[in-house]
Design a protein around this nucleic acid. Structure first.
Lengths: 228, 228
DNA sequence: TGTACATCAGTGAACGCGCGTTCACTGATGTAC
DNA sequence: TGTACATCAGTGAACGCGCGTTCACTGATGTAC
């Protein structure tokens, strides 16, 4: 349980602590990838070590050379996904108030969608476990999302100080709300399609909401009175 | 499988189709309630019929008199929750453009929070199953959320026609996005608390985002130019 | 360059727990007369 | 009002599948000389 250095532990050691070579590392990778594939297609509720290992033509015993149990493997996948998620902060370094601010928002939405689609199975279970109170998954999720939430919070803070945004927004909560919207809505997707909203409707809607919530541009008709 | 009238099936028959009396109905209720309690506290992943039945001092065999399996029970709980969810549309009948529009939004947020907290365990698994592709859970969720999403979509449609809202919003997708934000953010709650946003920050943030996205009031400083 | 030995990597086959599920039964409630 | 019988409701105890997990082993790769 103790004794693993957190950083990159996933790439250095077997479950018994022994250092592993290149061949072993490849096997471990295949196991992780296959686990992710199963999470994408079949879901958590019927995830079985036997299936995973058989699918890549290896034996269940092999799995236990690298992971203590399935959760262990999933946690590592979640950590990897987290690294990709953290990388998304870069999309908040451009100036969303500029003329082409909505473009920046669209770029971010697209990047987030790619990220989500590449990791949906893993993220689904990460979030479930986190919500069910698993401390390890809580921690992984927090580490992944805080940077992005903070970046959005900073924009809101600026906006409030500049008088562009309502003081009834809490910066951090606003960031979290925006992230929540993205996460959840992307997991709908299919259902939405049936209801008549295309992927591009979704895309521009998300970008618009993000943009106006975080950067408060003028609306096309800003300054019109509410209807009487 | 076939042959059950959808409406109120949960209150009329045992798993074998036999009509049941008052005593049986009470037992069934206790089973459902206990299932919900387990979903709240322990989560889906370790839900066991034996535990549920033992907790209310009855036998696993009893469970199977009323439900084909655990999913069956959960589906019924999800249907019940759905009825409560549908009832929330009423909060969109008041005029969110009125002077006290933000109050309307706050009322809705509070109601939604009560709803969510009363059903979090069930909703969590309903959404998970729906996302993993289970048709029955998909259907239950759709029936529950479409009315609310439609109500919000209608507000957006009005707003766009009146020139108050951006044309880059797709009405239905916007409604879905707002619902997504609520659902997901409420399941965070705990994590947010630790990060320094209180429940009341959360409340006013959600209400503000909803209000400005759906009803586009003037902002405190509407009409100011973007910063140069 | 070849041989012996050490270490790394992988696995077949079985064990056994835990749980879903069922069956044959007991007990409770209702009803006819 | 009491008794007999029918139906409803509940359950103890066991069966057995499916899966996680392990152990003792084989095969592959690396290294010393």
């Amino acid at each position: 349980m103790e004794g693993m250095s957190t950083k990159m532990a996933s790439e250095q050691q077997a479950a018994d602590g022994r250092v592993i070579g290149a061949r072993a590392r490849a096997t471990r990778r295949r196991l992780l990838d296959e686990t992710a594939r199963f999470l994408d297609s079949n879901g958590v509720l019927e995830l079985k070590v036997v299936d995973i290992t058989r699918a890549i033509g290896t034996s269940p015993a092999t799995f236990y050379q690298y992971f203590n149990d399935v959760d262990d493997a999933i946690l590592m996948l979640a950590e990897e996904a987290g690294e990709d998620e953290r990388a998304l902060v870069e999309y908040f370094s451009s100036d969303w108030h500029a003329e082409d601010g909505l473009e920046s928002a669209l770029d971010f939405v697209d990047a987030y969608r790619r990220y989500w689609n590449a990791n949906r199975g893993v993220l689904r279970i990460r979030n479930l476990k986190a919500e069910e109170g698993d401390r390890r998954f809580r921690a992984v999720r927090r580490r992944a999302s805080v940077p992005m939430v903070e970046a959005m919070a900073a924009m809101v803070r600026n906006g409030i100080e500049a008088g562009r945004l309502s003081r009834s927004l809490d910066p951090f909560a606003t960031g979290a709300a925006m992230l929540a919207m993205l996460e959840r809505l992307l997991s709908y997707q299919v259902g939405l399609g049936r209801a008549g909203s295309s992927v591009s409707d979704l895309r521009s809607t998300l970008a618009t909401v993000l943009h106006q919530t975080l950067a408060a541009p003028h609306l096309p008709s800003a300054g019109l009175p509410d209807r009487a």
